[in-house]
Design a protein around this nucleic acid. Sequence first.
DNA 1: TTATTTTGATTGAACGTTCAATCAAAATAA
DNA 2: TTATTTTGATTGAACGTTCAATCAAAATAA
Lengths: 190, 190
Amino acid sequence: MEEIRKAQLIEATIAMIHEEGFTNASISKISKRAGLSSGIVAHYFSDKSGLLTATQQHLMRVLGEETKSQLLHARTPMERLLAIVNSNFSDDQFKPGVVNVWLAFWALVPTSPDLARLHRINERRMQSNLQHALKPLLPAEKVASTATGLAAMVEGLWIRCALTKGGVTPKQAISIMESYINSQILVNQD
Amino acid sequence: MEEIRKAQLIEATIAMIHEEGFTNASISKISKRAGLSSGIVAHYFSDKSGLLTATQQHLMRVLGEETKSQLLHARTPMERLLAIVNSNFSDDQFKPGVVNVWLAFWALVPTSPDLARLHRINERRMQSNLQHALKPLLPAEKVASTATGLAAMVEGLWIRCALTKGGVTPKQAISIMESYINSQILVNQD
DNA sequence: TTATTTTGATTGAACGTTCAATCAAAATAA
DNA sequence: TTATTTTGATTGAACGTTCAATCAAAATAA
């Protein structure tokens, strides 16, 4: 029961943030949308910020599982890199509700220790995944900085895909990142 | 008088968003911080969203002037590229208030047509600046995509510098972007 | 004087939180 | 079995607070 309710409320939170924006997603609207009463949020998440933290945690878990599942089928280092990149640009990651929650999340990181913690976890996981995949492809001293550059590109291109309709498509974004990876490998081999 | 007051209020907005976060920056706190009364905001900006739009516009103008000024001293195409990159990573761009306003700005773009407009303007200016600088360095068909990739890296690395203390430094960020530029040039020349 | 700027009290809506009350289901007792 | 007790999920009204917006009045400038 508890897990069902939590899932309902998290889903309703994403939907409301999508429909009315982060600022207008109130507890009463969210709970009504979930078909539940307003008091239930306090019962399961103690307060509003608990609900928002849980919602972001949920999105990070979804992304993490998508990455893990794509990594399963990857055989070569290059396939592993593309698996990581692709999982960040899957359709799931561009559902409008998801986009708005991630953007609100970043905006709240500077003032919420809980969210700052989540942010750090997410960044480290990405960095570690990329470094592991890059290790066989680059000289040791280039691995970390290239991983950081690629992680930044993932973030920056994702934001552009998400915010600018009529701008870069996920397909173009992936090709730009492939070009970055390939040129870094090419330049560093000899 | 009007310009003085507007500047005071914008500065107070940035300060309050820094000190208490975007969510808690109310009109009364902002105006008190500026040493003025609460009604004055409506007088000069018509409403709160007008004040926020003007604040973001101000930050974009500051960044634009920083870029323009750095471009003045650039002689070669490569110097022009680095001027653009450097202006995005100057100390001014990492003042905590400035960081929080930019992050809140992105979060509000999906629900505010005014801010979406500002966002598009900013993105186009960056893209155009980068393309102009890259044109002499790359084959024509590579210019646009490399500019997009570089713009994304600027954004992504800036977020990392801003949000993750103890993470990437602006200096490292710039070196990562230089490496991207150089490898793209090298790979594409023959 | 007249026009402009500024104040700050006031309004009313919206919000997050709290909590006593409800109720179906499960556990226990007879 | 049937009756009673207990649990825990859930409700929804009430509370105090905060907020953006309004506006008449005061202050200031021209």
